[in-house]
Design a protein around this nucleic acid. Sequence first.
RNA 1: GCACAGGUGACCGAGUGGUUAAUGGUAGCAGACUGUAAAUCUGCCGCUCUUCGGAGCUACGGAGGUUCGAAUCCUCCCCUGUGCA
Length: 404
Amino acid sequence: MTPPFAIQAQAGPARFARIQTAHGPVETPAFMPVGTAGTVKAVPQDILEDLGAQIILGNTYHLYLRPGHELVRKLGGLHKFMSWERALLTDSGGFQVFSLSELRKVSEEGVSFRSHLDGTSHLFTPERSMEIQIALGADIAMAFDECTEHPAERERARASMEMTLRWARRSKEYFEAHKHEAPWGNREIGRSGDRENGKPDPALAAEWGPSGQARPETPALYGIVQGGMYADLRRESAERTVELDFPGYAIGGLSVGESRAKTQEMIAATLEVLPKDKPRYVMGVGYPEEIVQYAAMGVDMMDCVLPTRAARHGLLFTSEGRINIKNARYAQDQSPADPTCACRVCTRYTRAYLRHLYVSAEPLAAVLNTIHNLAFYLDTMRAVRHAITLGDLSGMLSGSVSLA
RNA sequence: GCACAGGUGACCGAGUGGUUAAUGGUAGCAGACUGUAAAUCUGCCGCUCUUCGGAGCUACGGAGGUUCGAAUCCUCCCCUGUGCA
């Protein structure tokens, strides 16, 4: 199988590339907004398109519980259900093994969960996770893994890693046998996926020509590296995951409470082992300066709830640093959230108004804050890609997006 | 004018003799948030100092009083609401 991925430009470890999916291209390094329950919270799909999002996440566990993957399949798959015609990546439910720790029990077979919605019991296995992700119609599915908690003793991290490897094998076996069942029939591939992005950078647009690669007919399954905070376990996990031969690899189990230096060390150790001609995805990161840094290290994909969740909590990311829009000091501030941002929020509304909306608990506060934060993240990654094509990322690392 | 009911910290509202600077909410101020159980959570929230352990002062309409001790009991006064004149 030819990986739907081609290196088009390279500047040091950072790569500008394109992942071809059945629902359009994904330029990398990419930041992927998280849309857990079939929605990137507070942002309509057409605005996500205008912001330039080429791929968003969905979540296996949440969509399985509600509305149910069979219903989604019946309605034509998640793309059609939520009217999102660009690429979609689904998380396997592995993170919920970690985050819902009080409601689950892990065994060799899989994980039994108690629904956080109604308390009912459910068993997630690698096979089940694949079945659900295929039913949802993801372009990129993730292997069912165990996101190891932190801190974890070495033996615990090893055992968890071994389990994830066994689950990865089972995930792949089931996935390969059933991937053709994705509900992609009668799709109008890429109608909106080929649409012009919101604010394409002219210099970059030249690089974004047709890839010439055929669009995949089936979804892709990525493996996930674990290994706790032990560099040698990370390397071993990566090597053995690569042996299973996936079209892309994720680094999971990071940003779970460890120091940023440790996160970076784990990423660096893992990247050394992962093949350079396939997408490498660090799951669940990060702050703007972090995603720039990781992209510079050679990471191709990242996702994080931070821009969306923080926005709902009043935290805005700007070129001048983070601002908490609920602070009293913005009550009469007539400037935009970020004076250098060209997003639809910053070109239209003042900090004073955004603060008022937040303080008043108006739903529009979440909408506008989230749109801005996503614009900031997506613009940042667009700038990273541009810088890579120019062969120099140093400017971005030394401050232009670094935050106080 | 009479009869009931009631006056608690910015607001609402507990508390009817003793760890009460005073339960809870709200408002306010600040912080956290990293493959989303998150429009959530945490801290502060009378004043003044503090070596951050604490110390002092002022407080439950007002003034007296009872008591070792009162927001809580008694007396008078002021004010508010409702009803009757």
